[in-house]
Amino acid sequence: MSTDYQQAREALGVRLRELRLSAAGGRLTGPQLAQELGWPHSKVYKLEGGRQTATPEDLRAWAEAVGHPDAAEELLARLKGFESHIRSWRRQLAAGHRPVQDVWNLEVGRCKTIYAWEEAVIPGMLQTADYARHMFLRFADLQGSVRDTDAAVRARMQRQTWLYETGHRFHALVWEAALHALVCPPSVLASQLDRLMGTVGMDTVQLGIVPLSASLRIPTANGFWVLDERLVIAEDWHAELWLDDADSIATYLKVWRTLSESAVYGADAQNVINRARRTLNPR
């Protein structure tokens, strides 16, 4: 989690603690407040310590329980300011792409299950080094950022070891358009498609391809990742959006599952990949 985001959670926690200690009926201990709210007392301390993000319902209940219902609007305003956290590319890439990859590696390392949707590129967890190198170069040009390409590629390749660890599951959805996008030389894309073929059948990977001819229940849109159903990371041209509130996570999972209804898997997915591969080397 970013420093700005975490600082905002901690500041909210400090304010919650102030309200508990100045409760209208007299100072409340954490266990007393938890009992009043019907929560495990650990939740009180996590919220006060900035280790858990409160929901709007949590904040309203807290304000009522401490006898300061008028504080609810202030608390909700604080929450609204950071529950949808925007991490601008300009700020993130100030030191290059490698630090961004390191942050991703930490988050992925904490996960057991990942859901990913990519409509324009091959998911980073399944990229070849050459394909990843061209992606970093393209975005360095776009953002005018530091060219630490080799270090960034190594970090992304390091993350892929996650796929070979027992107990992990990567549910990847890719739109067929990404299989044809020449954001790299044809020879690099060909090798990338060969790599993608090899992931079909891995016990830690479920790869679905949404064919261009598939009927869609919703339009394809920006790529996003859901990590352990605790964090969503969505990308836009100006920033990454990091979301950990329950409503947003539920929405993105619903989007993923809706898109997955249009996907093909196994041999059918391999056929779509092969079709794209043949366009690069027609025979």
Rank of each mutant, 00 (worst) to 15 (best):
G208F: 06
A267D: 14
N281V: 00
A221R: 08
G266T: 01
N105T: 00
R147N: 07
A8L: 06
P186G: 04
R20G: 03
Q160N: 09
R51M: 13
A246S: 14
R20S: 08
A61N: 12
D247T: 04
L207Q: 08
R217D: 13
K80A: 15
Q92M: 15
E261D: 12
A23K: 02
P56Y: 07
A116H: 08
R275G: 15
L179E: 08
D130A: 15
L12V: 03
V100N: 10
G26L: 06
R17M: 12
A190C: 01
S260L: 00
H238Y: 13
L59V: 01
G144P: 06
P211H: 07
V100L: 14
V272E: 12
E10G: 01
A77N: 10
N271R: 14
A234G: 11
V255R: 11
Q7F: 10
Q160H: 06
S248L: 04
A95V: 01
D141Y: 02
L28I: 02
P211Y: 11
L173Y: 03
V205R: 01
M157T: 03
V100H: 11
H85L: 04
L280N: 07
T251Y: 11
M157A: 12
F139Y: 13
E74P: 10
V210K: 12
Q32R: 13
L207S: 08
D148Q: 02
T128N: 04
Q127W: 13
Q101Y: 08
R98M: 10
K46I: 00
P219S: 09
E48T: 03
L227T: 01
R156V: 05
V100D: 11
A120N: 08
D130C: 04
L163I: 02
I86L: 15
A151R: 10
W62K: 05
L212C: 12
R87E: 15
L126D: 04
E261Q: 14
W162F: 11
V210T: 02
H97V: 00
A234F: 08
H180I: 03
L16F: 05
R20N: 04
N271V: 04
I86W: 08
F82D: 11
W175R: 00
T279V: 12
K46C: 00
L182W: 02
L280F: 07
L182S: 09
E18L: 02
G198S: 10
S145H: 09
D244L: 04
G201C: 09
Q192T: 07
A178T: 01
W256R: 00
D203M: 01
L33D: 09
Q158W: 01
A116R: 04
T149R: 03
D130S: 14
L137M: 12
V44M: 11
G223C: 04
Q52V: 00
D203H: 12
N271L: 10
R20Y: 07
G49K: 04
T204R: 06
V44E: 10
L173T: 01
G201Y: 05
